[in-house]
Each structure stands twice: as structure tokens, then as C-alpha cells.
Design a protein around this nucleic acid. Sequence first.
DNA 1: CGGTCAGGCTGAAACGATTTAGGGGTACGC
DNA 2: GCGTACCCCTAAATCGTTTCAGCCTGACCG
Lengths: 336, 336
Amino acid sequence: MVSIKDVARRAGVSLGTVSNVINRPELVSAQKRALVRAVIEELGYVPSESARQLRMGQSRILGLLVLDMGNPFFVEVARGAEHAARAAGLRVMVCNSGQDPREEADYLSLFVEQRVRGVLITPADISGVNHNGFVNHGVPFVFVDRVLPAAEGCSVSVDDVTGGALATRHLLEAGHTDIAFINGPSQLAQCADRHEGVRRALTEAGLAESAVTVLRVDHLDVASGRDAGARLMGLPRRPSAVFCANDLLALGLLQAVFAAGLRVPEDLAIVGYDDIEFAAAAAVPLTSVRQPAWQIGVTAAELVIAETGDDAGSHSHQRVVFQPELVVRRSSMPGR
Amino acid sequence: MVSIKDVARRAGVSLGTVSNVINRPELVSAQKRALVRAVIEELGYVPSESARQLRMGQSRILGLLVLDMGNPFFVEVARGAEHAARAAGLRVMVCNSGQDPREEADYLSLFVEQRVRGVLITPADISGVNHNGFVNHGVPFVFVDRVLPAAEGCSVSVDDVTGGALATRHLLEAGHTDIAFINGPSQLAQCADRHEGVRRALTEAGLAESAVTVLRVDHLDVASGRDAGARLMGLPRRPSAVFCANDLLALGLLQAVFAAGLRVPEDLAIVGYDDIEFAAAAAVPLTSVRQPAWQIGVTAAELVIAETGDDAGSHSHQRVVFQPELVVRRSSMPGR
DNA sequence: CGGTCAGGCTGAAACGATTTAGGGGTACGC
DNA sequence: GCGTACCCCTAAATCGTTTCAGCCTGACCG
């Protein structure tokens, strides 16, 4: 593979000059600049990023570790992050932990190996063990979709407690008294918070926490939603409404409900979370709690970029919290 | 950041010994091995991938360039590729061209800068201009979802002509004589091939090519599907069935159809393509042409890995073509 | 005409790893 | 006692960049 040395030799100039043509062309006379550029073109020279990175000490890549690439919500977050990164001349390396803390640790160490400029992470593990190693290495990071004490680092999240309360309040107001909540593992901050929101709405309404049946699933995906749906059908007393911790679960539930021959919302009202694009196109359009996914990605990337920038000295950790919004569609409409 | 030199100094051994402990531990005495490992742990040393890569001349990363990360089909392909890569000790860097040849060129040059081990690409541009640069650099590549003359390189694809024919035949057999085809830009091989399949089915049935109304969209996403749906509603003579070049279009179309107060399949039958997970959960479960997405990703990664392996000399380019499969669901069921 | 200065270029020193030639030991056989 | 073989380790070369100190040249000024 052709290196900068080959270009220099062919053009009859020194290494340094070629490098300057590439990185600081204003330092080179127009004549040599043109000559070198022509040779680069001729030889098809492409600088080696690893050599540059080795010399510079840091890469031009941001690491993004998401819980589930199969969830359009995270795809949208990734898009936002890419957008902001591009504006700063950086790239994003997207990885998928699949909610597995071991995979998470694995990818985080990959990020350190790559000496990424910064990391955006939706933590799979509330314990924070994984992220400790990180702090030691001094890699700037931002927690996405999870609040963090401001002293430790930046975070961008959505108020999931409010989100959970919004959904639950909506179902209570529609007159449902027998509600189920299909939730993921409580290790996930999102799940814990949304559950807390459910409790809060119940308390407000003067109801006991036990008024809601909680079904737990291991993964927040469509298949788990179907499973939970099947379990739901088997309950001695079937609830009249279900709040799902995300839209994938809700879509899976929807399938199970139809398979059982029930109608939505007449026999069962459903509310999801995330408002992914497919929620509106579902068998019965899904009521959902919308999160500004793209905006979350953009903000997180901007924060981590700011932390690595020239004025990093003056950087103080921030905690950005967006507000969720209830989008009511047919799946929870009363009186039909 | 702590380097191998720091570890060597602290452990009182030479650089080479530390390197050997990491890469060829059997060459080092058990005693020093333990010592060095302890120091590595103590200092939190993580090898710099860029330094290693610079020395080794190639990275341990595969580049994957997809048309649209918002399409679950490609997410599944990426998952498959990651699976196969992991088995070979490699990572996958997933990038999104968004069907834009300029973005594509940009990412391909990124791949070369990174000196990736190999590239998997779903080309956005049929002209092949972008991929030429590639061949010159000698980076092994595999075309995904697009056939390639075997002389030029490997490819993994699905027989889209057959797929298009399957869908069309299905609609014809159900008695539809007035069919529309919502297709993407013909620069995309997938779109061109599926269209060819449509033509073939028409010919078989003794119909003229003009029996099918073709609506063209620029992007294969839900929003474009909605737009095309709106256009469809405005046609002087509304067709009784629509074949969409992918499921995202079909889902968007479905929304437009409902918004117009029509029923599926009674007023309009719909067939999609890809059989993404959301197709089964759609407003009306979508009939679709299934492609083995995961398998495509696995195969493509394995091919490119084989090409870069030790026995690369004996490698001859392969062309793997999977067969699609029609999955009939309610959206195209006749007689209801 | 000598001095100063700036512009444009060169050459060499890093960056952090891998790899290889070779150097001390120790054990063994003659 | 000497040669040989083997094991474990060290030291140095190398990968492809960027950057920095310094050199040369010509222009400008006094």
C-alpha cells in the first residue's frame, strides 16, 4: 500500500511537505501544492488513519454503545449522534450491547483500544462497574437515556418517571381500574424509572400499588412482547389495559392479543413507549410515549465533543433531561 | 495514557517480553508471565489498537456499508455479519450511506483510511464508480444484495427477479388485473431486479407490461410509502392491488390507505418485500417476500474473511444467491 | 553592503506496538 | 573443560504519520 514516503519520493519533496499539503496547505507554495496533489491523485494515496492516530494520540471516532440496534428508537439516537459528530469532523462507531453487561464490557474495552475521542453509552448495567474502568482511562463519556450524578459525568435522558406516569394516568382517566404493566429487567434504569412513574400515578389516584399487575420480561423486543401477551391471556382475571415499557413489547403483545381473538382497544387497551415509526402503522395504531430520540443523540454527541474540545478545561458536567409526550392513538381510545 | 513501555519499566522487563505475554504467552516463563499480568492489571494498561495496526499493516475490522439503517432488514444483515466476524476475532464497523453515492464514496474512503480488513457493501450506485477505487487499493470486498460478475469479486444476494415475480404472480392469481408497483430508484439493483420480476410475471400471464402502473419514489422508507399512497389515491382509476418494493413502503402505504378510509385487502391488496418483523404486526398483517437477512450477513462476512485469510491465494470469487420466499398474510388475502 | 525577517522547505524525532536477531544463562554429552 | 543445544529474555528496527527545529533564499531596510 502506497505511503506518504512514496508520494514524497515521486514528487521530489520531503515527507513534511506532503504532510503539510494535506493538513495545512496554506504553508506550502501553490506550485508544490499542485504538484503534490497531482502525485497523490496519480498514486491513489490514502493516509493511514492508524499512523495519524498513533502520532496524534487520539482518534477521530466517537463510540456509541446502545442496548438494542433492533429498536428503531436507538437507530434514531445513532442518527442524531452521527449528525452532530459529522458537524465536528468526527465519525461514530455504533455497537450493540444487547443488554448484556459482558458484551458491554467487551465493547467498552474495544473503545479504549481504539482510543476513541469519547463514548456515548446507554448502560446495560446499573451497577456502574463497567463504566469505572473508563473513568480511570480518562475517556470522556456521556450517559444516554440514564441520569448520572452531575459530578461523575454528563448525561442526556428523558424523564422516564414522568413518562410512566403519563401513560398510567391516561389509562386511569379512561376508566381502567385493572391494569397490567409489561416491564423489562429492573437493572435497566429506563425500566425502573417507568415503573416508578406507574407507582406515582397510582398513588396520585389514591390506588394501591397492587392495583397494577407487573409482568416481567428479559428483553425489550417483539418476541418478548408476544410471550408476555400469552402469559397475560392465561391470567385468571384479565386486565382491561396494558402499559408496555416500550413499543416493541407493545407490538408483540398486539400480535398475541389478535391471535387470541380479542379486540384492541375494546377488550384490551394498550399503551407503548418510544413512539417509534412503526407504532403509528401498527395493527391498531399505538398510543405511545414519545421521546425525542434524534435530539437525544445530537445532544449527547455535542456534550461529549464539548468535553474533548479545546475549551475542555472550562467544561462542567451537564445533565440534560428531556420531557416525554403522550401521543394518543386508537389502541387506547375509550368508548368505541 | 499508559503504554507498553510503562508496563515494562514497572515490571522490570523489556518491551518485547510484555508484548509476548500478551500475544504469545507460551514463550514466557510462568513467573514473568504472572508478574507482567499483575502489572498490566495494576496500571490498567490497554494496548493501543492503532499502534498494533500500524505495525501489522492491517486492522481487525470489517467495514459494512448499508443503504439504510432505518430498515430492519439491514439491521439483521449487520447482526449476521457481526456474528460471523466475531467468530473470526474481528469487529464490524457499520455505516449508513442513505442511498447517497456521495456518502457512499465518503465512507468507502473512510474504510481505506482505516485499512479495514475487508468491506461488505450494499451499493447505492449501480455505476460502480465508487467501487473502482477500492479494487485499486486491493481491499477485499463483497457485494451484498447485489450480484457481481464473478471475475470482479464475491457477492451475496437474493434472487430479486424471482422475488418480484413471486409477489406479482400471487396478486395475479388472486384475480387482480389492475396492479400498481411502488418502486424505488432504478439505480438500485434491488429495485431494477424486482421490477424485472414484475415484468416477467406479467409476460407469463400473457399480459402487457403496461398492465402495471409504476409509481416511483426516491427513498425506500415509510414516509415515501405514505407519499406514494397519497399519489395512488389521486389516480383516475385506482388499482385493486399494490406491490411495494419493500415493507417500509408498504407500511407507509397502509397508513395512507387507512387515512383515506379504505379497507385492506377488500379495497386494496398489498404485498411488501423483506418480511421485516414489523410486517406481521402491521395494521393489517403484511404479505411479504422473505429474504434470509441474517444468513446474508453471515455469508457475506465469511466470504470476505476467507478472502483475507491465510489460504487467500486459493480463493476464487463466489456468487451466492439465496432464494426468496413468499409469506402470505391478510393484506393480500382474497375473498373477504 | 550587512542585517533582519519571513517564507518555504528539509530532516529527524517522536508516537506505541510487533518482531527478529542475538545474548546470557543452564544443562548435557563427550 | 569445551562444544552444543535450548530456554528466556533484551535491544533494536520497523510501521506511516505529524511536528518542530533549523536551513536556505530572497526581499526589504537602514
